[in-house]
Design a protein around this nucleic acid. Structure first.
Length: 553
RNA sequence: GCGCCCGUAGCUCAGUAGGAUAGAGCAUCGGACUUCUAAUCCGAGGGUCAGGGGUUCGAAUCCCUUCGGGCGCGCCA
């Protein structure tokens, strides 16, 4: 891209300055290019002269002057260079490179902006991983949107990504779940028995019980309690899991792998992993329990792997799970966890190291939680009391496009206030519609041209695109590769929605200023090409965000 | 008490590796449709970047500290 080209040009100029002893340089620093905040300061700027000033003991503007003198722009992409302020070098690009971008978009289509910085690196991305004991809530929706979009962005940058859902289908919560269904079943069939204190109160538990009654009536009333619970556990589990998959499908999220925690216990992978850690010297017994020596890796406490009652902890299974992932040969594991799990990060990284891997083999993205509001009032949610708004209900009320877009607009470092009333009420002024509208408008122009029987030659004279709205729009298109790469590198999807809005805005502005289909055939052809290029990039952005690109609105 | 995240316009938030005059949307006010979609565009007002100190040519950004908010700190998952 142009950024790298400019950086290289400056570097070459510095090398020349070094050879000709114009600057007393020991080594050439990395040349950083950035977009100046002020458009009047050019398309790109570098502060390299300011950085060097201290080292070579010369005024920054004098250094900048030397760099500019020695800079050799063979491709003539630079229109003008200015030395400004304390010593910035500002580059004003020629229109030629913008027209080259247009040609590139036409040539590459929706692959424009994709890169190969991942170079086939295998990444395993684990996210959502909701417990299969109830419907997903809104917080899960945020991780679904963030994880899926991150996976898309990484793939577009040449990473080989696998999306995985870890099913916590083992342990006490499953038993409580089963018992809850069993009691509801009996109650619905007229038995007067109390509901367990720690049971799940949600209406969905009754729904599951009703379904069992509808299919098999009171067949299980005579079955011993233990056995009944065990049967119900499997039925209910399967049903909830199917439901989870369906909800995620509606969100547009599909996982490559669904990994069951149970299999780790059944295959004794958990025990084997503990033994492996023991061999490596990180396991000891105390107070009747088996402990992991997390303090060996700077943690403040050691952690229990097997309780005094002989049951392995969730943590033990999670270590086995991460070992399983590492054994599958991924270059990097990325987990997306809610902020309520952040205290868990240190010990998991300690475990990775105890298994013999560097800590950075595992990356953990901590996302802040979602606060659900309705008309400004907080909605308290609890799986135990069953008072909650499910992701399904939200999908029904607001729709997947708006949900994904709204969830991706904010940095995952910020807690997100999600007001249902607002999301519905604003739905016609929602940013997502603003972006989609730009796409629909372009489609409409294309339809109009077809209906009018207007045909364009393939030989497009891009130089006719020389007004401000046109050039601004092309400039915005040219930013796409930078945005996409940054999202992948920083593992942060939210710049995508900003970019989508900016691109839509640049198009809407162009649309009001420039008539596409008109008298001048050549100009019409060039503007149509610009519309199509914009459509291509918009589709690409929306595809990565996971939002539809409608032809009509 | 300790740890992580946050505090930027009336509201919700961006702000890329420390750069030049701190941005966007919503809200408010004022304009623009006889022409390819007005779910649009143009303009205006609005700020002690929570407070204080430090680092330097230069700080919303880095360091220290105070205040305020969220979340953790289980032989729960």
């Amino acid at each position: 891209m142009i950024k790298e080209k400019l950086s290289l040009l400056v570097r070459e100029a510095l090398e020349k300055a070094q050879q000709r002893a114009r600057l007393p340089l020991e080594e050439i620093p990395e040349v950083m290019l950035e977009h100046p905040r002020e458009k009047a300061h050019g398309d790109w700027a570098t502060n390299v002269a300011l950085i060097l000033a201290g080292k070579v003991k010369m005024p920054p503007r004098a250094i900048a002057q030397i760099i500019v003198e020695l800079l050799d722009d063979k491709q003539r992409y630079i229109e003008k260079i200015e030395i400004a302020g304390p010593g910035f070098i500002n580059f004003y690009l020629s229109n030629k490179w913008l027209y080259d971008v247009m040609a590139l978009i036409k040539e590459q289509g929706e692959k424009f902006g994709h890169s190969n910085i991942g170079a086939g690196q295998r990444i395993q991305l684990e996210f959502v991983s909701a417990n299969p004991v109830g419907p997903m809530h809104i917080g899960h929706g945020r991780w679904a949107a963030v994880g899926d979009t991150l996976a898309n962005a990484l793939s577009a940058n040449g990473y080989d990504v696998e999306k995985e859902f870890y099913i916590n289908d083992y342990g006490n919560q499953m038993n409580i779940f089963a018992k809850s269904v069993a009691v509801r079943y009996a109650q619905l069939l007229g038995q007067d028995i109390p509901f367990p204190e720690d049971g799940y109160q949600g209406e969905y538990i009754k729904d599951i019980a009703r379904e069992i009654i509808a299919e098999e009536n009171d067949k299980y009333l005579g079955v011993p309690e233990k056995e009944r619970e065990s049967i119900f556990k499997e039925r209910a589990y399967k049903q909830v899991l199917d439901h989870l998959k369906n909800t995620l499908y509606k969100m547009g999220v599909q996982f490559d792998t669904w990994f069951s925690e149970r299999t780790l216990h059944e295959s004794s992978a958990v025990n084997k992993t503990i033994e492996l850690l023991r061999e490596r010297g990180y396991v000891y017994e105390s107070e009747g329990a088996v402990w992991f020596k997390a303090t060996a890796f700077g943690e403040d406490k050691d952690r229990v792997l097997i309780r005094a009652n002989g049951e392995p902890t969730y943590f033990a299974a999670d270590i086995a799970y991460h070992k399983n992932k590492l054994d599958r040969g991924f270059d990097k594991l990325i987990n997306i966890w809610g902020a309520d799990h952040h205290g868990y990060v240190g010990r998991m990284k300690a475990a990775i190291q105890a298994l013999g891997y560097p800590a950075d083999k595992l990356e953990i993205i901590i996302g802040q939680l979602v606060n659900l509001l309705r008309g400004g009032e907080p909605v308290r949610m609890s799986k135990r009391t069953g008072e909650m708004v499910t992701l399904d209900e939200l999908l029904e009320e607001v729709g997947p496009d708006a949900i994904r877009f709204l969830f991706l607009m904010r940095s995952t470092d910020s807690p997100l206030d999600f007001d249902i009333e607002l999301a519905k009420q604003e739905s016609s002024e929602n940013p997502v519609y603003y972006v989609q509208y730009a796409h629909a408008r372009i489609s409409s122009i294309i339809r109009y041209a077809e209906a009018e029987g207007v045909s364009f030659s393939d030989n497009i004279n891009y130089e006719l695109l020389n007004s401000k709205p046109e050039l601004d729009l092309i400039r915005k298109l040219a930013e796409w590769p930078e945005v996409l790469e940054r999202v992948a590198r920083q593992r942060a999807p939210h710049p995508l929605t900003s970019y989508a809005q900016e691109l839509a805005s640049a198009f809407h502005y162009f649309y009001t200023k420039c008539r596409v289909i008109g008298e001048d055939k050549d100009l019409s052809a060039a503007r149509m090409a610009l519309c199509k290029a914009t459509k291509t990039v918009l589709r690409s952005v929306l595809a990565i965000i996971g939002v539809s690109a409608p032809e009509k609105m």
